[in-house]
């Protein structure tokens, strides 16, 4: 593993019923924002959850900070933020939820949390179960970023967000990688947003890697990511 590699994958195979995800070799470097794109059922969520140690792999090697995330979830998750729009939460008022979760993380950044709560215009006294879909996405984002993780894995972070919310999200993601020791992986169908922030792309289709590399290399001048995806036959 290179010094700057935060995540390293080799010959990864994840089986879920008849679906198989295969990723021969891939790594996430510090300071990088990787866009994970592909049609529905391509394996984006499966991959991102496997990297987060939320789902077991069938074969191969996944190394996050030099550890297997499935075998050492407690150590890995202290430095890895994961966000998904259907992540189950405790149904508590936001303020109490944040206080409760803060106890688990020595690196919890109270100032960042309240900056984000303010930026996302969330009422801290509102209960999680009373939030709208977009507000639910925002609180999940805050929980994923609050302890300044070295790696941030975002699965459909723009789900349910309005335009302002998406702009705030992009700003927040860019803020994270201001620190060169950190990295972000974003899975999204909002290709315009991905193209705007991602340094590199990982394009999946039916569990296989279609394209991988720097965004500037993969998406030609004058072409959008949407057009490129159509050209690669990975639009769905």
């Amino acid at each position: 593993m290179k010094n700057k590699d935060l995540i390293e994958v080799e010959a990864l195979r994840v089986s879920r019923g008849s679906f198989v995800l295969e990723l021969p070799s891939w790594s996430l470097h510090a300071g990088q924002i990787v866009g994970l794109v592909g049609p529905n059922g391509a394996g984006k969520t499966t991959l991102i959850e496997t990297l987060a140690g939320l789902d077991p792999k069938s074969d191969g090697r996944v190394s996050v900070f030099g550890m297997d995330p499935w075998a050492h979830p407690d150590k890995v998750r202290l430095q890895l933020g994961f966000m998904s729009d259907d992540l189950p939460l405790f149904a508590l008022p936001i303020r109490r939820l944040l206080k409760l979760v803060s106890g688990y993380y020595p690196t919890w950044d109270e100032e960042l949390v309240w900056t984000l709560v303010d930026r996302f215009k969330l009422d801290p006294d509102k209960k999680v179960q009373d939030l709208s879909k977009g507000q639910g996405t925002r609180i999940r984002l805050i929980l994923a970023m609050a302890f300044r993780p070295r790696v941030l894995l975002l699965d459909e972070p723009a789900s349910g967000l309005d335009l302002k919310g998406r702009i705030d999200l992009l700003k927040s993601v860019l803020d994270v990688v201001q620190d060169p020791g950190r990295a972000v992986m974003v899975s999204s169908h909002m290709l315009g947003d991905v193209e705007r922030i991602a340094d590199a792309l990982l394009v999946l289709n039916d569990g296989r890697v279609v394209k991988e590399g720097p965004t500037d290399t993969l998406v030609k001048d004058g072409q959008t990511l949407e057009e490129a995806m159509l050209a690669w036959g990975s639009a769905g």
């Binding site: 890995v76 992540l87 189950p88 939460l89 405790f90 149904a91 508590l92 999680v128």
Partner: peptide, 19 residues
Amino acid sequence: IYQSLGPTPMPTLPIGRKT
């Protein structure tokens, strides 16, 4: 107490399932 939502509330907490 926590009125957990979903089958495994807050699965991303830095603690293993069994623990």
